[in-house]
Design a protein around this nucleic acid. Structure first.
Lengths: 194, 194
DNA sequence: CGGCAACTATTCCGCGTGGAATAATACGCT
DNA sequence: AGCGTATTATTCCACGCGGAATAGTTGCCG
C-alpha cells in the first residue's frame, strides 16, 4: 500500500487521541497550529477521511445529530490505521525526498535580473526570514512557559534551524554580490549549462 | 494576474533563449537537470504551454512536420511573456512562503515512536543527506571544470547549504536523544499543545 | 427584537498534475 | 532483412486539492 499523504497522517494523529467527527479534527488542527505544518483545508480533509474509511484505517464510530443540522459522523482509528500511521511516520523520517521548493527555482533564474535588483530582493527576503524566526521564537517561548516538553514541538525547532540557515545563506550571497565576489556580468548570454 | 507556476517559469526560461516546440523544451530541461528544481513531466508541460499560449505569454512561431509524425508547434515568448517571467522571479525571490515539506510533519509526530527507533531512523536520514551533499558537490565540480560561472548554478549552492544545515540539525538531535538531553518519556500521553 | 455577521458542518466543482496510452520512426542486433 | 526496443511527440484520463457554495444556528449590536 502506498504511503499516506500528509493530511491523512495529521488526521490519524488526532484520531489516535480519541474518536472525532471531521469538523472537530479540522478545528483541533487549527487550534494546534497544525495548519503551519500540513496543508489543512476543510474540503480536502473530508475527502481524506472518506479515503481512510474506504481503506479501513478508520471506522464510523457513531452518528450524531443536533437539531436540524447535518448529521455528524464520528470516526475512530482502527488497528490497521494505527499501524499505517506509525509506518508512514517511520518511512518519512529517514527519507529525504525533493519537494521542489520555489526559492531554488527563483535563485536559479535570478541571473535574468540585474545584480542590484537581486541584492534588493534578497534583502527583503532576509527581513522576512528574520520575522519568521521571531515568530517561531515567540511560539516556542509560549509553549515553553506552559511546560510543554520539547519533543512535542521538535518540528518548530527544526524549522527555526532551517530558516536561520537560509538567512545565513541569503546574507552571505548578498555580500558576495555587493563585493563582486560573485560575478554577474553578461545577463543576456546563452545558458551555458548543457 | 496571478503568479506563474514553477513549470511555467521553467518553460519561459528556455523560450527566452530561443523558440522551441514543447518536446524540445522537455528534453532541454532534462539535459540541464531542471527536473531537480521543478517538477517536470511531459503531460504537465504540454498543458502549461497551452495555458501560456492562451494567456498570450507565448505565441505559435511555426508548425513543422517531418514524415508522418505528429505536427510540432514551435512557440516563441512574447514581450508580455518576458515581462511575466521576470516579474514572477522577482516576486519569488523576496517572498518566503511555507511549502509544507514532509519532514517537519514526521518530526512533529515522531513522539509516537520509541526513542531508539527515532535515533535509528534519523541516522539513516543523516546518511542520505551526506550522499546528497556528495552528489551536489560532484555536480558543482563538473560544471566548474567546464568554466560555468557560479551565478548559473547558484541554486545548487543554495541547496547544498540547506542540506548541510539539515544534516547538522539531525546529528545534533540524535545526540540530544542519545545523551538524554531531549526527554522522550510517556510516549502515549495526551497531546499537550492546546 | 430584528437583522446580520460569525460559526458549525458538509458537499460540490473546476483545475492542475502526472502517469498511461498512442503512434510513428530510428536504431541496434543477429 | 526482420524484429524488438528506444526515442520522438503528443493526447488523454483519473485523481487529489482547495476554494466556493450551501444551509442551519448562535451571538451580538443597536
Amino acid at each position: 500500500m502506498p504511503r499516506l499523504n500528509p493530511l491523512a497522517v495529521a488526521a490519524l494523529a488526532v484520531l489516535v487521541e480519541q474518536p472525532m467527527h471531521p469538523y472537530e479534527m479540522y478545528q483541533l488542527m487549527l487550534q494546534r497550529r497544525e495548519d503551519h505544518v500540513v496543508r489543512v483545508s476543510a474540503g480536502s480533509l473530508y475527502r481524506a477521511v472518506e479515503r481512510l474509511a474506504a481503506d479501513g484505517l478508520i471506522v464510523e464510530h457513531a452518528t450524531e445529530r443536533e437539531g436540524n443540522r447535518p448529521e455528524r459522523t464520528v470516526y475512530a482509528i482502527t488497528e490497521q490505521g494505527r499501524a499505517a500511521f506509525l509506518e508512514t511516520i517511520a518511512s518519512m523520517l529517514p527519507d529525504h525526498v525533493n519537494e521542489y521548493p520555489e526559492f531554488p527555482l527563483a535563485v536559479g533564474e535570478a541571473h535574468n535580473l540585474p545584480r542590484d535588483r537581486v541584492v534588493e530582493l534578497l534583502g527583503e527576503r532576509a527581513e522576512q526570514l528574520r520575522a519568521t524566526v521571531a515568530s517561531l521564537d515567540a511560539g516556542l517561548a509560549r509553549v515553553d512557559a506552559k511546560g510543554v516538553p520539547t519533543r512535542f514541538v521538535l518540528n518548530k525547532h527544526y524549522s527555526r534551524a532551517m530558516v536561520l540557515a537560509e538567512l545565513d545563506w541569503v546574507l552571505a550571497t548578498i555580500d558576495d554580490l555587493t563585493t563582486g565576489a560573485l560575478d554577474w556580468s553578461s545577463p543576456h548570454g546563452p545558458h551555458p549549462v548543457a
